[in-house]
């Protein structure tokens, strides 16, 4: 579904990604782990061109992303994204946050979009917050609304950029639970995370990034229990 070939990204003189090759298949849950500054988030943000790669190619269903030009907007409709800082729209209610994109971009009727949003909000465990503003919600609730907002566009793939890193510890579970449910339903997901328990349990494949490259990849068992690389073992011994 997504194919990444020799992806490079530099910020000025700083080379963050030094050649990434990877493929993400439909229905797969790929967890990206690694130390801060290893390039995980940059890699994820390249997948929907929030960061423009310096070199290399990304193909989605065989279509090269770099040649899309203005059509990038319609592509982004098919790729949902959840951010570390939630990025809910603070001037809109929960319901408006979730329905804005389907109404404006998919020309869905407001009633139809609201019906759909109601289903999604129930799914993420927030059936009674329609008229609340984001600042009235806890961090965990905000992130679940953000997930519902992304799902409202019926994405084919969901990107999660450290979705639980800005949460208080007691709220991490509720967000991971929603993500796990999504994975069980067969959603294609790329998750940048520090939650090793989640990666091991839900991930189909783990990418360990170090110094701007994928240092090792494999099934959770291969990475967490039988890692072949010294750097992977060193990282895991520090975080687990």
């Amino acid at each position: 579904m997504i194919k990444v070939v020799n992806l490079h990204k530099s910020f000025g003189d700083l080379e963050v990604l030094k050649g990434i090759d990877s493929e993400i298949k439909k229905g797969e849950v790929v967890c990206v782990i690694g130390a801060s500054g290893s390039g995980k988030s940059t890699f994820l943000r390249c997948l929907n061109l929030l960061e423009e790669p310096t070199k290399g190619d990304i193909y989605i269903d065989g279509v090269p992303l770099m040649e899309l030009g203005k059509n990038i907007n319609s592509l982004r409709q098919r790729v949902g994204m959840v951010f570390q800082q939630f990025n809910l729209f603070p001037h809109m209610t929960v319901m408006e946050n979730v329905t804005l994109a389907p109404i404006k971009l998919k020309r869905m009727l407001p009633e139809e979009a609201e019906k759909k949003a109601t289903v999604l909000l129930r799914k993420v465990g927030l059936p009674d917050k329609d008229n609340a503003y984001p600042n009235q919600l806890s961090g965990g609730q905000k992130q679940r609304v953000a997930i519902a907002r992304a799902l409202a566009m019926d994405p084919e793939i969901m990107l999660f950029d450290e979705p639980t890193s800005a949460l208080d510890p007691e709220m991490v579970g509720e967000v991971l639970q929603v993500m796990k449910q999504l994975a069980l339903e067969g959603m294609t997901m790329v998750v940048v995370t520090h939650e090793m328990g989640f990666a091991r349990e839900v991930g189909d494949r783990i990418l360990f990034m170090d110094g701007g490259v994928i240092a090792e990849e494999g099934t959770p068992e291969e990475i967490f229990d039988n890692s072949k690389h010294e750097r992977t073992r060193a990282f895991l011994s520090k975080v687990i």
């Binding site: 203005k70 907007n73 319609s74 409709q77 994204m81 951010f83 994109a101 404006k104 566009m153």
Partner: peptide, 23 residues
């Protein structure tokens, strides 16, 4: 306005102009 707002809008598929206008 927080930079993340533009990113969130763009990630949903809004163009730059639409992101400015709605968000």
């Amino acid at each position: 306005v927080d930079k993340g707002q533009m990113e969130a809008a763009r990630s949903l598929g809004f163009s730059y102009g639409q992101s400015m206008r709605y968000i």
